[in-house]
Design a protein around this nucleic acid. Structure first.
Length: 455
RNA sequence: GGUCCCUUCGUCUAUCGGUUAGGACACAUGGUUUUCAUCCAUGAAAGAGGGGUUCGAUUCCCCUAGGGACCGCCA
């Protein structure tokens, strides 16, 4: 059975790149009728925060990237990680290193000054006697040997082990380091496919060494190219659109973000729109691209606009109400009801949920705009007003009739009536059509607003 | 600096050696429209450069250029 995993460290919110990695892992496992597991790599006690862990899990849930089984915590397996290190030590695949931090820093510094590449020189590699000093445990890497990474995305990568250093497995406080923990956990969790960011490519080689020394069966590796920001640089936390939360905040629907992420670095023929079933059905590791891709915010918005228009309305409303309640000022229930029952009108020029909220603004946040009404407009509005007051309730046909009459009687175009009216009723020249505005406001509120301007 | 990776319209991408190099977003123009949008139609827009291999290269190989990742007792 295929088992994949997503293994974030809870040192920040879920990153957009991480979200895509998680999505690919999820999709592949589902496509193969396998499992997708979540492992929280919380061994950095200093930087790991529970709040980030919760945010990551919430964000994955929001995106609909659901993991199987319980969450795995790397910190709970530390004993097993150190056991493996000790076994490697016993079998002479690892050794104790007594070099001090200062000594190492110095060597690094010298290397830097001479602008040569620094890797640990293996000073303690062949030490025979035990010393009564603090030590770290390093993996003994076979020198001058080619090792292969059969990467499902990048192809075969061959590297000479002499460019790899004898990296640390156990710190001087006896805690395991990342490459050890990750390898052991992947083994323990029976991970069959490791799908992760390109930045782990070199780590993969190190992890492969551990697997080989331990005689474990290797998982298959897939390193996907990173996502760059719009200016072509590495996406960083300082970019204000780097976490899923950033997108949620401006009213991007999870289904849209998911669709966008799916098509970033992956494709299936010319297909652009994928629902959940389709994305599982068509996803394949073969179609992952080799080159890094830039974030295109316009594309995200356009996809979001597509979903706003095409999603069934009750689902859209559900998302919208949660969005407003989470991020916008508190609105009375009857205003929310008014918005949701007129969603088909208000969603009209919206690319985001925030746009829908803003489009609804005229309902509850009305201001008198006297300066826009000149005398000619006033006469026409007056005429409209005196006809409108005769109506008892909203009646689309009768309103159209009134409009037609005014246009004919005054020999004007519709916009001569419509534009000032729209300004009076909404305070903006960009709003729904006149009859929709009246429908949303209701006859009496419409009358109130007009009265304010013509008296 | 060392090792490794990448390179098709502005962006995301299709192309399994032979195509008028396709699609989508964005852009431009026109049309529909009760403002603005939507919608529809049309258009402009790409194989980094140089060598090979081949009857034929965007596709395979090499070099150059550009970009990226990694090089912690972080993960």
């Amino acid at each position: 059975m295929v088992i994949t995993r997503f293994a974030p460290s809870p040192t920040g919110q879920l990153h957009i790149g991480g979200a895509r990695t998680a999505l690919f892992n999820y999709l592949y496992s589902k496509n193969q009728k396998g499992k997708f597991l979540l492992r929280i790599e919380d061994t950095d006690k200093e930087r790991s925060k529970k709040i980030y862990e919760n945010q990551i899990i919430d964000s994955l849930g929001w995106l609909g990237v659901n993991f199987d089984d319980n969450v795995f915590y790397q910190s709970q397996n530390i004993k097993k990680h150190t056991d493996v290190a000790n076994q490697l030590l016993k079998n002479n695949f690892a050794y104790k290193c007594y070099c001090t931090q200062e000594e190492l820093d110095q060597k690094r510094e010298i290397a830097k000054q001479n602008s040569v590449n620094y890797i640990y020189d293996g000073k303690c590699r062949d030490l025979r006697e035990e010393k009564n000093l603090p030590f770290v445990v390093r993996l003994k890497i076979e020198k001058n040997k080619k090792i292969m990474l059969y990467d499902g995305v990048q192809g075969d990568i061959e590297i000479d082990t002499s460019t790899l250093e004898d990296f640390i497995l156990l710190r001087s406080d006896n805690t395991p380091t990342y490459n050890l923990s990750a390898s052991v956990d992947d083994k323990l969790m029976n991970i069959t496919h490791v799908i992760r960011g390109d930045d782990h490519k070199i780590n993969a080689l190190k992890q492969i060494m551990i697997f080989q020394y331990m005689g474990w069966k290797l998982p298959k590796y897939f390193h996907i190219p990173l996502i760059h920001s719009e200016d072509g640089k590495k996406l960083s936390k300082r970019d204000n659109a780097s976490t899923t939360e950033d997108y949620k905040k401006i009213g991007i629907l999870p289904i849209a973000l998911r669709n966008y992420l799916l098509r970033l670095g992956w494709s299936y023929k010319d297909k652009e729109i994928f629902n959940d079933e389709e994305s599982i059905k068509y996803f394949s590791l073969k179609n992952i691209g080799k080159s890094p891709s830039k974030l295109d915010f316009e594309r995200i918005k356009s996809l979001n606009e597509f979903y706003i228009k095409n999603l069934n309305e009750s689902f859209l409303i559900e998302n919208l109400v949660i969005y407003i309640k989470t991020y916008k000022k508190k609105l009375d229930d009857n205003i929310i009801d008014n918005i949701t029952s007129n969603i088909n009108i208000l969603k009209n020029k919206a690319k985001t949920l925030e746009d829908i909220y803003n489009n609804s603004n005229f309902i509850y946040d009305f201001q008198k705009k006297l300066d826009v009404i000149n005398d000619r407009n006033k006469t026409i509005i007056n005429e409209f007003y005196s006809e409108l007051v005769k109506l008892k309730s909203y009646d689309e046909e009768k309103i159209s009739q009134i409009n037609q009459n005014i246009i004919k009687n005054n020999n004007i175009k519709f916009k001569d009536l419509g534009q000032p009216l729209r300004l009076i009723l909404t305070g903006s020249d960009q709003a729904p059509s006149i009859k929709d505005i009246i429908k949303i406001l209701g006859i009496s509120e419409t009358i109130n607003r007009i009265k304010l301007h013509i008296n």
